[in-house]
């Protein structure tokens, strides 16, 4: 018997990291300075590593012979369960930083709580990942302040990037049946409980960045049940191309 809720929980953890890692890898070779290129790539590599562990665990739980690659490369958008925020396009560096800022601050709180999970595998993965994500948070916060406070142009671009991504923040704190069961069993994180700490963290940075705290946006959701933006299909068609074009081949 598959532990369905736990399977989906691990899947979501992996999908968030995989999709954001894929997005960051699009930057490789195109950043504003060589140093920034190296930083973005380091974050992307952390996320791809996290995805590999979490999807591998999901595959084990499923017990249907799908490994991390099987899950990454052979699911269509309807079966992807990442949040909508991570699949948003890179846009300019301001939009990328806004996305990283909004996600990494949530990711850090989520993983910190998950490190206390009764599921030993999830707890261990979270404890390892949270160190990586601490750095992602620092990187994103640093750049929020620099772009927000820097020049009128950077301020305007960052505001637009924040505006683009802000719509998808509510979703991060909304739990569904899977979340509820995981919380009850002491495995998962009560997402709503992270909200106050999240707001405090991001308001601090927004203040330093001379940016107003955006108004609460109507929740746009769907990612966790496979209803995504139009962007995800394109991301997947690129990422999965070889596995789809040559079924059964090993690489």
């Amino acid at each position: 018997m598959i532990d369905q809720p736990l399977f989906h929980y691990a899947l979501r953890l992996g999908d968030d990291s995989l999709i954001l890692g894929q997005r960051l890898s699009e930057w490789c070779g195109h950043a504003a300075a060589l140093e920034v290129d190296l930083s973005l790539t380091n974050i992307g590599l952390d996320l791809i590593g996290q995805a590999t562990s979490a999807l591998g665990y999901a595959g084990d739980l499923e017990g249907a012979g799908r490994d991390a690659d099987g899950l990454a490369f052979h699911r269509d958008a309807l079966d992807y369960e990442n949040c909508l925020l991570v699949e948003q396009p890179n846009g300019d560096f301001g939009q990328t930083i806004a996305r990283q800022f909004l996600f990494s601050n949530w990711h850090w709180l989520f993983l910190s709580a998950l490190a206390a999970s009764k599921d030993a595998t999830l707890a261990a993965m979270a404890a390892k990942s949270v160190k990586e994500v601490s750095y992602h948070v620092e990187f994103a916060n640093d750049w929020m302040v620099r772009l927000g406070d820097g020049t009128p142009e950077s301020h305007q671009r960052l505001s637009a990037g924040l505006d683009w991504n802000w719509r998808f923040v509510e979703e991060l704190f909304i739990g569904d049946d899977v979340d509820n069961e995981m919380v009850q069993r002491g495995i998962g994180v009560d997402k709503a409980s992270l909200r106050a700490a999240y707001d405090a963290r991001i308001i601090d940075v927004l203040n330093d960045a001379n940016l107003p705290v955006p108004k609460k946006h109507r929740a746009i959701t769907g990612g966790r049940r496979g209803h995504h933006s139009e962007h995800l299909g394109h991301l997947l068609s690129q990422m999965q191309f070889l596995q789809r074009a040559y079924p059964g081949a090993s690489w």
Binding site: A33, L34, E35, L38, S39, E138, D142, R146
Partner: peptide, 20 residues
């Protein structure tokens, strides 16, 4: 060496460049 706009980012750039 690295290029950076300030000391804080210089440290991060050094970390991302020289301690991978």
């Amino acid at each position: 060496s690295v290029h950076a706009p300030d000391a804080e980012l210089a440290l991060k750039h050094a970390r991302d460049t020289y301690t991978r």
